[in-house]
Design a protein around this nucleic acid. Structure first.
Length: 202
DNA sequence: TAGACGATCTGCT
DNA sequence: GCAGATCGTCTAG
């Protein structure tokens, strides 16, 4: 069952935690890519120095974060990778959840082709493990890029579903790659499924 | 309009 | 473990 607008229209920390174990679905050229979310990070707009929207900044790039909850926020990082986020709370409040890692479920061969240009069986052990265990990596494997910025996640192209197994422990820890963010770099806004092999960093 | 930098990943040491 | 890749976005002037 698809997650609706109400799911996203809540406190960002809550949504970040509850997104764990949910299934991400992307329809591409007649095929469905599916994966389970295993790692997320919360970005709390105004009061969070690590967020693009810190202090209420509104620029061309971050305006997406001010949109409706359940909207995709996709941006380019380091000139070569895309990061996929989900807008939360309500329109006008610039908060979002970064999807950091996914466990592949369906059409893994297509993901392997998108990421490494060869089918899954031909991947080395190292490549299999690294298929989707990071924000830039999962974007490659799921064919997510800037064209999906501002897309409605309550639609039929890219959306989330309730998962099957939701029995797991959630680990809370500090976020990654935001050392510039002063005191905000130590906030415990990163969440992942304990023991899952696709988590980007322990 | 120029200059600095980043919510990352890879490959080499 | 560390540096390089690589360019859109933002800020200052």
């Amino acid at each position: 069952m698809k997650l609706n607008r109400n799911f996203y229209s809540r406190d960002t920390i809550t949504v970040a935690k509850e997104l764990l174990g949910k299934t991400l679905v992307h329809h591409i050229e007649g095929n469905k890519l599916k994966g389970m979310i295993v790692e997320t990070e919360a970005y709390l707009g105004l009061r969070d120095k690590a967020a693009h929207s810190y202090g209420g900044r509104i620029t061309k790039r971050v305006e997406t974060m001010y949109g409706l909850p359940g909207t995709a926020y996709v941006y380019l990082i380091y000139g070569m990778y895309y990061c996929f986020n989900i807008v939360t709370v309500k329109e006008g409040i610039p908060e979002a959840v970064l999807i950091r890692a996914i466990e592949p479920i369906e059409n893994i061969d297509i993901m392997a082709l998108l990421r490494y240009g060869k089918p899954y069986e031909e991947l080395s052990k190292y490549e299999k493990k690294n298929l989707t265990n990071g924000p830039g990596k999962l974007s490659m494997a799921f064919n997510i890029d800037k064209r999906l910025d501002k897309i409605n996640l309550c639609g039929d192209r890219l959306y989330l579903e309730h998962g099957n197994k939701e029995m797991f422990n959630i680990v809370e820890t500090k976020r990654i790659g935001i050392d510039y963010a002063e005191e905000a770099k130590d906030y415990p806004y990163r969440f992942y499924i304990e023991g899952n092999p696709y988590v980007s960093k322990l």
